[in-house]
């Protein structure tokens, strides 16, 4: 449970629950573009997973399977880094219709 008032805070703002960045849904920061995944052009090199500054790339059984948009700020690094296959990128940025 998140602390509410000043009496509930930890001394010196120390964070005791490791990995609590999961609670911050950075996907709400996304404004214009979102990454789109084309599986047929993916070689599962994992560069998108490696470069993603948050945890938006979903990997199952060693394979890239798509994005968790709750953690995607739309920075476009994954699309930039994606080497794709035969000159076709597996990730490209697309304007988001809201």
């Amino acid at each position: 449970m998140k602390p509410e008032g000043w009496r509930d805070l930890t001394p010196g703002a120390v964070i005791l629950d490791a990995g609590n960045a999961r609670e911050v849904k950075t996907g709400t920061w996304r404004t214009v573009d979102k990454p789109v995944f084309k599986e047929e052009h993916c070689s599962n090199c994992m560069l998108c997973w490696l470069f993603c500054p948050d945890m938006a790339v979903i990997v199952k059984d060693g394979k890239m399977v798509g994005f968790d948009y709750e953690y995607c700020k739309g920075c476009g690094i994954c699309a930039f880094e994606c080497p794709g296959k035969k000159g076709q990128k597996a990730i490209f940025m697309e304007e988001e219709k809201k």
């Binding site: 000043w6 805070l9 005791l16």
Partner: peptide, 24 residues
């Protein structure tokens, strides 16, 4: 027991941390 010192605390809680510091 991993932990973090020195987080970014913005308008939602900074005021409360200073209130707690005054209390100490």
């Amino acid at each position: 027991n991993p932990k973090s010192f020195g987080p970014l605390i913005l308008t939602d809680k900074y005021h409360e941390y200073k209130r707690a510091q005054h209390e100490v």
